[in-house]
C-alpha cells in the first residue's frame, strides 16, 4: 500500500489534510528538493501576484523594483518558520528533524501558491465588479494552507491538537524574535562598517597632508 512517487506524495499530502502527513511520516517519504522547489515557486508567485495582476484591480508602483521584499516574503519567512519551529519543538519534545519540518511545511504551502497563480490568471479575465471570485479563491487557499500547516506540525512532532496550537504560537514568537535580532544585527554591522570607513578616511587624509 501507498507506494507513491515523491511527486505523488505531494498530491497526497495536500489533498488529505487530516492523515496525509501521517501517511508520509509512516512511509518516511518527502523530498527536500521538491520542498525547495515549492518555496521557489512561492517566491515567483509573490512577484507575479504583485507585478502581473490585472490593471483593473490597481496599478503597482513601477518606477522602482526591489527584489528584497519578495525574498523576505518567501525565503526568509519560510526559513524563519522552519528554524523557529525546530528550535521551539526541540524543547517541547517534538520528534521532527529540521529536514522533516522543512519538507512538511513546504508541502503545506502548495494551496497558497496555487491560489497566487490562479488569481493572477483570473485577474486578466475578470473585471473589478467580479473581485469576489478572487477573494473567495484567496480565502480558500489561505485557509487550506493554515489547516495543512497545523496538520504538518502535529504529525511531524507527533503532538496533540492543543500542544500544536501552543507550539505554533511559540514558533511565531520565535520568528519575531529572530527577525528582530536580524534587523538589530544588520544595523550593527552597518554602524561598524561606517566606523571603519570613517577611520580609514581620517587616516588617509592625515597621510595625504
Amino acid at each position: 500500500m501507498m507506494d507513491l512517487t515523491q511527486r505523488q506524495w505531494v498530491r497526497h499530502a495536500v489533498t488529505h489534510p487530516i492523515e496525509g502527513f501521517e501517511d508520509m511520516r509512516w512511509k518516511k517519504s518527502g523530498s527536500v528538493r521538491i520542498a525547495f522547489f515549492i518555496v521557489f515557486l512561492l517566491f515567483i508567485g509573490e512577484i507575479f501576484d504583485e507585478r502581473l495582476f490585472g490593471f483593473q484591480f490597481g496599478i503597482p508602483y513601477d518606477k522602482t523594483f526591489s527584489i528584497v521584499p519578495y525574498l523576505v516574503k518567501s525565503f526568509v519567512l519560510f526559513g524563519a518558520w522552519v528554524v523557529g519551529n525546530w528550535a521551539v519543538c526541540t524543547l517541547l519534545d517534538g520528534e521532527g528533524t529540521m529536514k522533516n519540518i522543512c519538507i512538511y511545511s513546504a508541502y503545506s504551502l502548495v494551496p497558497y501558491i496555487v491560489q497566487l497563480f490562479v488569481n493572477v490568471l483570473l485577474s486578466h479575465v475578470l473585471v473589478s465588479d467580479e473581485v469576489v471570485f478572487i477573494n473567495v479563491i484567496r480565502l480558500i487557499g489561505v485557509g487550506w494552507t493554515v489547516i495543512l500547516l497545523f496538520s504538518a506540525v502535529r504529525s511531524v512532532h507527533q503532538y496533540s491538537g492543543g500542544k500544536t496550537v501552543f507550539a505554533v504560537i511559540l514558533t511565531i514568537a520565535a520568528m519575531l524574535i529572530m527577525l528582530f535580532l536580524l534587523v538589530l544585527f544588520m544595523s550593527l554591522v552597518q554602524q561598524i562598517w561606517i566606523f571603519i570607513l570613517s577611520v580609514y578616511t581620517e587616516i588617509s587624509y592625515r597621510f595625504r597632508v
Binding site: G54, F55, Q56, G58, I59, V127, S128, D129
Partner: peptide, 10 residues
C-alpha cells in the same frame, strides 16, 4: 487609471 482600464476591459 485602473478605473478607466476596468471600463475599457469590461
Amino acid at each position: 487609471s485602473p478605473k478607466l482600464y476596468d471600463k475599457a476591459f469590461e
